[in-house]
Design a protein around this nucleic acid. Structure first.
Lengths: 205, 205
DNA sequence: AAATAGGTACACAGACCTGTGTAACTAGGC
DNA sequence: GCCTAGTTACACAGGTCTGTGTACCTATTT
């Protein structure tokens, strides 16, 4: 039906721009005019691709929903590596907290927003849980929740303090929790600058 | 100078109402008309007490800034009790996350908002730190930061999930961190339903 | 060349927002 | 009784917001 449009990326461009502005400045703070002006298109074009601002918000959150992916590294490396990448993201000047938490804080009781936010948080918690199960942790569920708390805690703290060290604090706490659960964690945790990088395929689960 | 006004609480009433609406529905979501209408006063009266909405927002955050107070309970009870009161607040239906984090998320780069938010977070962290020093914890500073992460993490998680159990998960993690730092924590942590309530005045610091 | 899909320019409706101006009212203090 | 401070009702300025309507333009496809 639809012939390929001349510029196949107009919808993407709109969404990408909306994403950036919504995330950096807040959803309520950005009007559709601002988004259109930023791209240099007319507001009419924007509304030809998205029926309403609400639809754009929904698409924005859907775009941000990137479920954590399991790599071939060891479970411990993956878990602790989460906090390393958090620290990297905190250091970027365009980091402004968790888009889902922010959206819930901003839009309050909006059902659909809350729903996707919960789904996102749960996806990460389950990712942690699976890794913990692989490590043979007894109460993987509870520990996964606690790790998730550390992630969101460091994000919230960095949002207000602008201090990437929050990620390292979370990593140290996570290390203690893992060790307490009987998980063997490589010696020098700290900044993880060049640790022993042995890649054992997978421990007995 | 000012003779006592007939209704000495008008300014308070405005502030209290603004607080409730700002917190529950978001600062940007609430207009001054809405606040005035809620109290049943004219918008003019509101502006006679606060020169601008910005001033009202500032007063709102100042009002929310309640520094944690040290009680006569044992340091461990005070630290872990923090998570018990969090759980109670999570269970209240009018809980909507941390007002400071929410304000930063909503108002973005606003300097003064960020400033008061940082001050609030730091006041709690220092409260933790002092208690940990009393307990003779070596790196009280680092552990205080980690406890703060658990607090904010549970708040963020409860904001999206609406699950007061996040507070208990944080409490359990905090218990592990405390024990790991050499602090003796009473046996049955869990829900803390009637633990041994020995009140020792103060441990060797 | 004609048709079609998509974009542009621009005005506009209707709502809401912050903040002000003004005249009238109401109560307590002198 | 009168003054004063606080309040009220109400209009309004000037801005922003979402969303629509309309007429024109510009490529690509057929």
């Amino acid at each position: 039906m639809a012939t390929l449009p001349a510029k196949p990326d107009m919808k993407d461009r709109i969404l990408e721009t909306a994403d950036r502005l919504f995330y950096l400045q807040g959803i309520r703070a950005i009007g559709v005019d601002t988004i259109a002006a930023e791209i240099g298109i007319s507001k009419r074009t924007l509304y030809n691709h998205f029926p309403s601002k609400d639809a754009l918000i929904t698409a924005y959150l859907a775009r941000r929903f990137v479920a954590p992916r399991t790599s071939d590294k060891s479970p411990v490396e993956q878990i602790l590596g989460t906090f390393d990448s958090l620290e990297r993201r905190f250091s970027a000047k365009d980091f402004r907290g968790c888009p889902f938490v922010n959206a819930v804080a901003e839009l309050g009781e909006d059902r659909s927003v809350r729903k996707v936010a919960v789904a996102f948080k749960e996806s990460r918690r389950l990712w942690f849980r699976d890794l913990l199960v692989q490590l043979g942790v007894a109460d993987a569920d509870a520990l996964a929740t606690q790790l998730a708390l550390l992630v969101d805690g460091s994000i919230a703290q960095d949002l207000v303090r602008n201090d990437p060290a929050m990620a390292r604090a979370a990593k140290e706490a996570a290390t203690v929790l893992l060790r307490n659960a009987g998980v063997k964690v490589g010696g020098n945790i700290a900044t993880n600058k060049r640790a022993t990088k042995k890649r054992h395929s997978r421990p007995a689960s």
